[in-house]
């Protein structure tokens, strides 16, 4: 007798547990306000990354096509993966003396692990994070980027008042 009671109580207990689970899913099924799914890429126009989003390393330029990179090479030394290469050149300054300036700031996005050490250690805040995240390309060489724009120059430091 006991075994029959146990048998049926197991069946009904099991069915009740399944119905309890289905009540949870059913609740969400009939309440469309709870939907959390985002429709990418349809929502591209409204999609906004957070302020600190690590998309890629970029070098901001101002309206005069001037950047702040002095070519010191600290980011190159600090990068654990060798994702940054800096090629410098000698250019004459106002008094005709040859000084070191940046020729190319090469950034290999394919080698970058987004550890933030280059941006953290940059003494002149020349590089920062960009918010672009759609990095897929058909050709691997397109992931190697030159960060300083052609014809750009070093921004003059404002005289301290």
């Amino acid at each position: 007798m006991n075994s029959i009671v146990k048998y049926f109580s197991e069946i009904f207990g099991g069915v009740r547990s399944l119905l309890t689970g289905m009540s949870v899913t059913g609740k969400y099924f009939i309440s469309p306000g709870e939907i959390v799914t985002e429709q990418y890429p349809e929502n591209r126009a409204t999609l906004k990354m957070t302020d600190r989003f690590k998309g890629e390393v970029t070098m901001p330029h101002d309206e005069n096509n001037q950047h702040q990179c002095t070519g010191c090479g600290i980011c190159e030394v600090n990068c654990p993966n060798g994702a940054i290469e800096i090629i410098t050149k000698k250019v004459p300054n106002e008094s005709g003396k040859l000084v070191r300036a940046i020729d190319k700031h090469i950034y290999h996005l394919s080698m970058c692990t987004f550890c933030e050490l280059c941006i953290k250690t940059c003494p002149s805040d020349a590089i920062t994070w960009g918010h672009d995240f759609e990095h897929a390309v058909f050709d691997r060489t397109k992931l190697t980027k030159v960060l300083n724009k052609p014809g750009s120059s070093l921004k003059k430091k404002e005289a301290k008042s």
Binding site: T50, R52, F53, K54, T113, F114, C115, K120, W129
Partner: peptide
């Protein structure tokens, strides 16, 4: 994402404190 800019691999805690 709001604090470190990344969701899975943060590299946020460094020797001496935080990034």
């Amino acid at each position: 994402d709001e604090s470190f800019g990344s969701r899975l691999l943060h590299s946020f805690v460094t020797p001496g404190g935080l990034m």
